[in-house]
Each structure stands twice: as C-alpha cells, then as structure tokens.
Design a protein around this nucleic acid. Structure first.
Lengths: 147, 147
DNA sequence: ATACGATCTCTAGCCACTTCAGGTTCAAGA
DNA sequence: TCTTGAACCTGAAGTGGCTAGAGATCGTAT
C-alpha cells in the first residue's frame, strides 16, 4: 500500500489527531458545508485523503484567528478558485481585524470599570454596605460608555 | 392618580423605554427568574412598578459590564439580602475582571496576527498569489499562539 | 469468535437572547 | 360608542459554533 492509499484510508479519528480538530467538530463542518463529504468505507465510515487534511488545517487556522464560519466559507471559495481576485480576501481580513479592534476597545473600557468597582470593596462588609452592589444599582455613578 | 399608581400602571413598553432593555428581553428575564413576575391588568398584560424599574436597571448595568446571567443572579441575591457578606460580590467581580483580561490578551494576539496577514496583501492580485490565502493554508508560517 | 475501541446517526443542550406566527387588549380619535 | 391600529400576549423555533449523549454498528487484534 503506497502513501496515497494510506492517506485515502484515514479515518476521522486520525484526521482529528493530525489537525487538532475534534471528531464531532469535523462532522459538524461537513454538515454545514465547510468540508466536502469524504468517501466511505464499506461499513459507511468516513475515509479522508490529503486534500481533506489541508482544507481542515486551513479552516482550523482561520477559526483560531477568530474568523466567523461565513468568512471562512468565502475564503475557501477564493482558495478553490485561484483565478479570482483576492480583493475579497483582503476585505474579509480587514473587516475581521476591525471587529477584533472594536471588541478590544469595548473590553478595555469594561476592564477599567470593573477595576474601579472591585477596588471599592475588598469584601468582609455586609451587602447593605457593599459598594459593588450600590454601584450596579445606581447607573448614574458609573462612567461606563453605553454601547 | 398619584405617582405610585402611575408607576404601578406601567406596561412593558414603558419599562423598556425607561431602561433601554427590549420588551422581548424583559420577558426573557422574567422567564429565567431574574425579574419577578409583575401584576397583570384585567386583560392579562404585565404592569410594572418602581421596584421592577430598579431591578431591571441593575440587571442592565451588570449585563453592560458583561457579567454572565448566573453572576447577576448571585449579585441580585446579595442585593436582596443586605445582611449577607459581600465577599461573594467581590469574588464575582474579580473573577469577571480576570475573564475580561484574558479575553483582551487573546484578542490582542489575534489583532497582531491579522495585521500581519492583512498587510501582506492589499488586494488586486489573483487568489493563487494571495498571501492571505497562502498564510491560512500553511500554519507553519504563522506565529500565532495556539490556545 | 470475541472483545473493545472507534465510528455511525440523530437529537438535544449551551448562552443570551431574537424572531416569528397568530392571536388579544388597550387607548385615542371620529 | 365604535373603530382603528399600536401594543401586548404565548409558545415555539432560530442564532453561532460547537458539545454531549444515546444507542447501534464497524473494524481489528487476539
């Protein structure tokens, strides 16, 4: 049996081990159309080849970078059609970067507010005197930006 | 009709307007036990009073700060029982702050990686030469931390 | 032949809502 | 008083991106 056939014979657990993507997640990706349906063994079990390993690695990398599944679908479409312009790939990445930056900004303002709140009370006193409870009860004390 | 009765007569839409929490979300909070069941009109519509406004404002403020619903439930329990120690309120806040900081750290590393990727390609070329697609296809080029 | 781990399908659960369908109630204007 | 039409009601299903479980079948080592 040559290397190609070994690759062809790869069951889902091996694909999972190779890519670090859980078995259930691989089946989920197939279900939502990110990963093409592989061949099956006589007993109806999935058998993957080299192309699947590469595609799943691409998907995992993009997910690790936080791309939403729809974005990944679009990136895969570009990857599948090498003649297309990569303007769209650039746009998807920039949009995602933008999204990430917005999330960072929002979380930083939350961080500041939570620091302030947590610092006002170090525990021990009863809840009726607790500054955390009071602050949450009275929005007017709060410098937090409304979103 | 005095101020108290006006407050008593407040329907869900007015509560929504006052607190900035959507009508559906208010009903959801009631369903999951964050907000107590209000009185009803003869025609079975919800009628809220001052206490509901305050409690919902508390919930909204905490949600705006990103507290999970379970954390809010615990904070409300403390708020309802003023004799209890506020150690728990402090612990909840600190745990949440910790969570926020972890998220920030993760997003910052994503931001760096996305900047790097987006900079390698400004669009225009065909997808077969697109550095974004290539980078995603080849994890070994990537300095991104695995989580 | 048997045991046992890997795999199969299908379904439900997670969070914190949001949306929808199909009805009922309320308040203001004619 | 009647009529509109906006606001309200319930219950179920959908969202994203998986994860977990039940119960059956497959594959392979001994």
């Amino acid at each position: 049996m040559d290397a190609k056939n070994i690759a062809r014979a790869m069951p889902i657990g091996s694909l999972s081990d190779r890519t670090g993507v859980k078995v259930e997640t691989i089946r989920y990706y197939e279900q939502v159309g990110l990963l093409p349906q592989p061949d099956r063994s006589e007993g109806n079990q999935r058998r993957y080849g080299r192309a699947h390993v590469e595609r799943l690695a691409f998907i995992k990398h993009a997910r690790d970078l936080g791309f939403p599944v729809d974005g990944i679908r679009a990136l895969l479409r570009l990857s599948d059609n090498p003649g297309m312009s990569c303007d769209e790939a650039h746009a998807i990445s920039v949009a995602h970067l933008d999204d990430v930056r917005h999330k960072i900004a929002r979380l930083r303002s939350l961080e500041k507010e939570l620091e302030r709140i947590a610092a006002t009370c170090s525990g021990g006193v009863t809840a009726c005197d607790c500054a955390i409870i009071e602050t949450l009860a009275d929005h007017s004390q709060c410098s937090h930006d409304q979103h």
